[in-house]
Amino acid sequence: KWTITVQGEEAIKWAIKVAEARNLDYTVHIDGDQAHITIE
């Protein structure tokens, strides 16, 4: 299990796209213009 933090709307969209493309189980916690994405 690991967490990445991305900043900015484009980076958030990209990170989610990558997680979905790899069929990963993930949760997103949005904090202002940052998102913390935890991959199970």
Rank of each mutant, 00 (worst) to 15 (best):
Gly8Pro: 01
His36Phe: 13
Lys17Leu: 11
Asp33Trp: 08
Val6Tyr: 03
Glu20Lys: 11
Val6Cys: 12
Thr3Val: 14
Ile4Asn: 00
Asp25Ser: 14
His29Tyr: 13
Asp31Lys: 10
Glu20Gln: 12
Glu10Leu: 12
Ala15Asn: 00
Gln34Trp: 15
Asp31Thr: 09
Tyr26Thr: 01
Arg22Leu: 15
Ile12Gly: 00
Ile4His: 02
Ile37His: 00
Thr5Gly: 02
Ala19Met: 15
Tyr26Asp: 00
Thr38Ser: 06
Gln34Ser: 10
Glu10Thr: 08
Trp14Arg: 14
Thr5Trp: 08
Lys1Pro: 06
Gly8Ser: 05
Glu40Met: 14
Arg22Pro: 03
Val28Lys: 01
Thr5His: 09
Glu20Val: 10
His36Tyr: 14
His29Pro: 01
Gln34Phe: 15
His36Ser: 11
Thr27Val: 09
Ile4Leu: 07
His29Thr: 14
Glu10Gly: 06
Lys1Ala: 10
Glu20Phe: 05
His29Ala: 09
Leu24Gln: 04
Ile16Gln: 04
Trp14Asn: 14
Glu10Asp: 11
Asp25Lys: 15
Asp33Glu: 07
His36Leu: 12
Asn23Gly: 15
Trp14Glu: 13
Arg22Trp: 15
Ala35Asn: 02
Trp2Val: 08
Trp14Cys: 15
Gly32Ser: 04
Gly32Leu: 06
Asp31Ala: 07
Gln7Val: 13
Gly8Met: 05
Trp14Lys: 13
Asn23Lys: 11
Lys17Gln: 12
Trp14Phe: 09
Ala35Lys: 04
Gln7Asp: 05
Thr27Gln: 08
Glu20Pro: 01
Ala15Arg: 00
Ile30Arg: 11
Glu40Ala: 11
Lys13Met: 05
Thr3His: 09
Ala11Pro: 02
Glu9Cys: 15
Thr5Cys: 13
Val6Gly: 01
Thr27Tyr: 09
Thr38His: 08
His29Gly: 03
Gly32Asn: 05
Gly8Lys: 01
Ala21Trp: 10
Thr27Cys: 09
Glu9Phe: 11
Ala35Gly: 05
Arg22Asn: 13
Glu20Met: 11
Asp25Gly: 09
Val18Gln: 12
Ile16Thr: 04
Glu20Thr: 10
Ala11Cys: 15
Ile39Gly: 02
Ile39Gln: 01
Thr27Ile: 08
Asp31Val: 13
Ala35Trp: 11
Ile16Gly: 01
Thr38Val: 12
Ala15Leu: 13
Val18Ile: 13
Thr3Leu: 10
Gln7Met: 12
Ala15Asp: 01
Glu10Asn: 10
Lys1Phe: 07
Asp33His: 06
Val18Met: 14
Leu24Ala: 05
Ile30Val: 09
Ala19Ile: 15
Leu24Arg: 04
Asp31Cys: 14
Ile37Tyr: 00
Tyr26His: 02
Gln34Ala: 09
Ile39Tyr: 10
Glu10Arg: 10
Glu20Cys: 15
Gln34Met: 14
Asp25Tyr: 12
Ile12Leu: 13
Gln34His: 12
Ile39His: 01
Thr5Ser: 08
Ile30Gly: 03
Trp14Ala: 14
Gly8Ala: 03
Glu9Asn: 09
Leu24Phe: 09
Ile12Tyr: 07
Lys13Val: 06
Arg22Cys: 15
Thr5Tyr: 10
Asp31Leu: 08
Asn23His: 12
Ala35Ile: 10
Ala19Asn: 01
Lys13Thr: 04
Thr38Cys: 10
Asp25Trp: 12
